[in-house]
Computed example of a mutant assay.
Amino acid sequence: MSKPVLYTYSMSVWAAVPELALIELGYTEKDVEKKTVNLREGENFNPAFLKINPNATVPASTAEVTKYLVQNAKSQIKAGSSLIAKIHEDLYDPNFPRLLARDDDELSAKAGGFQHDFLANRQKALDKYSVTEDAAVHKEFYDNKLAGNAHVLSIYQSKVTDDVKNGFFEQSKAHWDALRSFILDILPAHLPNSGFIGGAKPGEDDFHVAAWLARIASVSGAKRTEEGFEELEKEVGVPIPERVAKYWNAWIQRESWKMVYQDGLH
């Protein structure tokens, strides 16, 4: 029987979920094969990968992959709850904050950095793969991705009207408002006074929450774990709830966290 394959990328927020689970649950490289898909170069838009995952995401399905790892692990942990679906809602998307901009200063800073290159590389990959023979069966997917990515790229390149740009600013502000609400109101209601949602050790929910928090700390300006919580609090603008603070501190002491985020938060 062949080993299950985990499609991953080191800077992917959702790929960090099964990566944490693999370590916490005691899996080894003999148990699961890893294959890297370079999201920065748009490799996930290759028709060959779309055959594996029509949504072009890494991993193929964070929730399903992680659940598989939990259910097939030698050690038992607490199964996931409705919190997993909640944290994966578009309203709390941790990927959009990498690209959003709330004013001209933030847009200018990102337009001169990684974000612009990321969008430009995606567009180049989409242009390349969308005209291949194997792409025909994924025409709707490519059409939507080409238009959506080109729209944001055009904002970065100052090729839109002020109304379009200001609309993007408002969308960005609204998204951060939703993230703050999750951190300040929704998440604390799911967290215990100490430890993890899964108890003394992380459960299925915890893998998703940990990766989400790490990404939000990262887009708040933190590069390393040591400064993550401080930068997160600055971005939110008010003291982080005590339960969230304790939860963060519980996670950053875990060996799994140290291994997944050894090169910095992402």
Rank of each mutant, 00 (worst) to 15 (best):
A60S: 09
G203P: 01
R224A: 11
H151L: 15
V131G: 05
S181I: 08
I155P: 03
L213C: 06
N144F: 14
G148W: 06
E231C: 10
S220N: 02
A214D: 01
F182E: 03
G148S: 15
H138W: 13
K67H: 13
D127H: 10
G42T: 04
K124N: 15
D105H: 14
A214K: 01
A222S: 05
F169N: 00
D185Y: 10
L232P: 05
D263M: 13
L126K: 02
Y142G: 06
L213T: 04
A150N: 11
V209W: 01
F45A: 00
V32A: 02
S181H: 15
P192A: 08
I186V: 14
Q123S: 14
V219Q: 02
T28D: 09
K67F: 07
V32K: 04
R40Q: 12
G228M: 03
A250P: 00
T36K: 03
M1W: 11
A48S: 14
V236Q: 02
E89K: 14
E226C: 12
W212F: 11
N53A: 08
V5H: 05
G203M: 06
E24G: 05
Y261V: 06
T28W: 09
E33S: 10
Q76I: 11
Q71K: 14
L39C: 01
A245E: 10
G113H: 08
V65N: 04
M259E: 13
G113L: 08
D104Y: 12
